[in-house]
Amino acid sequence: MLRLENLSAWYGEAQALRDLNLDVSQGQIVTLVGRNGAGKTTTLRSIMGLHKQTRGRVLLDDQDISRLAVHDRARRGLGFVPDDRGIYARLSVEENLLLPPTVGPDPWSVERLYGMFPRLKERRRNSGSKLSGGEQQMLSIARVLRMGARLLLLDEPTEGLAPVLVQHVAQLLLEAKQQGVTILLIEQNLRFATAVADLHYLLVQGQIVDRLTNDQVKAREQELLKYLGV
């Protein structure tokens, strides 16, 4: 479904990504693991078109979207959740959910999302900034499901969350996967990564150095933790 071909990215003169090649199949959950500064966020931002200084190709369903504007990429079915959650303080919780246009054939209804997150329903008229960190995370994932995105790009969805909320996020991602949603996520928490994902790409200094299955991650956990600087 998603293929990166020789994707490179720069910040001025500094090269952040070096000829990345990566495949995510329809219905898979794939993680990008790596320590801070490895290029994980730059990868997601380059796929989304938010990082401009890039070279190489981004293919979605075999179509090159590298030259499309950011909003056009979203309308092809990409759902982006940034690392700061991206909740609008000037919009209510419900407006945060309803802002994006519907971009896929199977959007989740607001009622269904409220059923899953009663707290969001209780606070639907409140400003998005009044939510706790965990609620903001739920809202940001709920938002891209509401728009019917087919491929979610999630930047550290469990960062800073209490263990019970991490479980909640895992359930949500697995439920989305059951519906055929494909997910590429950045994750530092290896336990979480192996619990939800099918495949893992290890990123070191802007390069993919390994492609690992869950069993391989579990077998090499200590070594990987060193890579991650944890």
Partner: peptide, 22 residues
Amino acid sequence: GMIVRAATEKPDLTRALGVNVD
């Protein structure tokens, strides 16, 4: 108005959510 408020606050994210801010 909702689009204007969103674009005022986070223009890049608003684009990434499929809104043609331009």
